[in-house]
Design a binder for these strands. Structure first.
Lengths: 278, 278
DNA sequence: ACGCGTATTCCACTGAGTGGAAGAATACTA
DNA sequence: TAGTATTCTTCCACTCAGTGGAATACGCGT
């Protein structure tokens, strides 16, 4: 995604020069975006110095300076009192208008609230984006288990409840592509073998719920179900994440399963999905 | 905010020319931003044709074409099957990382949920941005009153509950500036006189809650309270919006008032605010 | 006072961005 | 089926906006 360092675009006195001068063939727009990407980058820093931005974006300091000023004047970046820069409210304002996120969220939220209220556990709403589960919404009470999901964050498909559901109903070529890569094993319990995963996906398609336990974060389990749109296509997944119950043999409270199913159905219906098939 | 049409920057054959050729002195960055602004613009359209974007941004078609392509390749815009463009997920992803919004939301959400649960009414969280109330969060059940607030939306300070609270605790020069402008009267009940508003603001500061009835949307009333950060500064406001009760003389259910107060205090405390005064 | 990291300003050079115009799709209409 | 809008895409010669190295200014610790 981010990546290449890149540098100046001048060819200048390379007349008889030895080393080919590194050229930055990125367009102005690409450079501007690189500056934003500096904030999304792996190390999730909420504020950066000018130099740090220049560094991460692979741009000369003076160019960065000029471009950052442009972002600030538009409101996409904000300068805080300590001189560091952070993402600006304007960006948030524009970002939340994004139709996919906004529509789904608006429709789903009441159902997610119901689910939260009846379970008192983390409630997640995620969609498939590229090869990740992208978290659109997350409701948590005051005392829920610590989890790593964040709104706007991404987690792998094979080790999360929502991820596995999204993968189960994804196009076959995506499943094949995903399973052909080597998958990270976050905990001893994480299932990474393609064969086993395929069985799991089939199980999820058969039962309409995914059950995960101790595969991403120690001490937490999750239970997820698919959300379908008018056309029957799975467009999102809901889940609840609970503290793992050492008693329960495999899978959490059955009442939870009903609640998650009900929430998923509710949202699907609100999206125009008909037919309850078993 | 958006505004000026602007056009080409060439001066060319104006040798003896009469009309001065319209020049667009916007930078590349400013033009790129203008394209995004086209989507935020007054007429809240969720998807636009290329021509419409060019139009709203005041850019030549070919330039728009090239720039839109840049946005799409980064993910800030997305092209849908029908050829129209909409804001892209990438923008959402970056936007939700914006610290102010993210931190406040994360901390406040559990309290907002409690408030929603106990009141079953619209719950709003807003901050002061420029001269508007900017809505950061909104929780609504399945059957709540129709209101016009949206997450990411803006509403005036003098005609909404959260707005009035934010104005009440704003710096004096902002209050003066705001009240010196002519204020829109949305409904017969909207208070627009500077004098009356000042009295109201004083009342809000004295009681710690704002009560509004039939001033923005017919049939709805609202009740708002301030949220303070560690330093005691009011940084946001919570409110609930209820269907106006024709019986109640002025102001909604007293239990609601307690709940809103409690939510505001809860969030303030979570933000590090100490001292309960009164 | 001195050094070091960071931020800002300056300016000569040049190729990236520009936009008018022509061509290609696509959608209505008759 | 041809005819006419309307919207989108590609092309290319021109030139000025953007570029980045260097010099300067700032801030902080020692």
């Amino acid at each position: 995604m981010s990546g290449k360092p890149a540098r100046a675009r001048f060819t200048e006195q390379q007349a008889e020069g030895e080393l080919s001068p590194p050229v930055d063939d990125r367009s102005v727009a690409a450079r501007l975006f690189a500056i934003l990407d500096a904030f999304t980058a792996p190390t999730q820093a909420s504020s950066l110095t000018l130099t740090a931005i220049a560094d991460r974006a692979g741009l000369p300091l003076s160019t960065t300076h000029r471009m950052v000023a442009e972002w600030v004047s538009w409101g996409g970046l904000a300068r805080q009192e300590d001189g560091r820069y952070s993402l600006g409210m304007r960006l948030w304002e524009v970002g939340v208008q994004t139709p996919t996120a906004r529509n789904l969220r608006t429709i789903a939220l009441p159902y997610l609230e119901d689910l939260y209220e009846s379970s008192r556990e983390h409630v997640h709403l995620a969609i498939l984006d590229g090869r990740d589960a992208l978290y659109l919404e997350k409701l948590s009470g005051h005392h829920a288990v610590r989890v790593i999901s964040r709104v706007g964050g991404r987690l792998p498909l094979h080790s999360t409840g929502v991820g596995l559901v999204l993968l189960a109903y994804a196009p076959n070529d995506l499943i094949d592509a995903y399973l052909s890569e080597s998958l990270d094993k976050y905990l001893p319990g994480t299932v990474t073998s393609p064969g086993e995963l395929r069985k799991r996906l089939a199980g999820i398609r058969a039962h309409g719920v995914a059950v995960m336990s101790e595969e991403m974060t120690a001490g937490s389990s999750s239970l997820a179900a698919p959300i379908r749109d008018r056309t029957g296509l799975v467009v999102a997944a809901v889940s609840i994440v609970t503290r793992t119950n050492p008693q329960a043999p495999r899978g959490p409270h059955p009442a939870h399963e009903q609640a998650v199913r009900a929430a998923a159905h509710g949202v699907s219906r609100a999206l125009g999905y008909r037919r309850s098939e078993a």
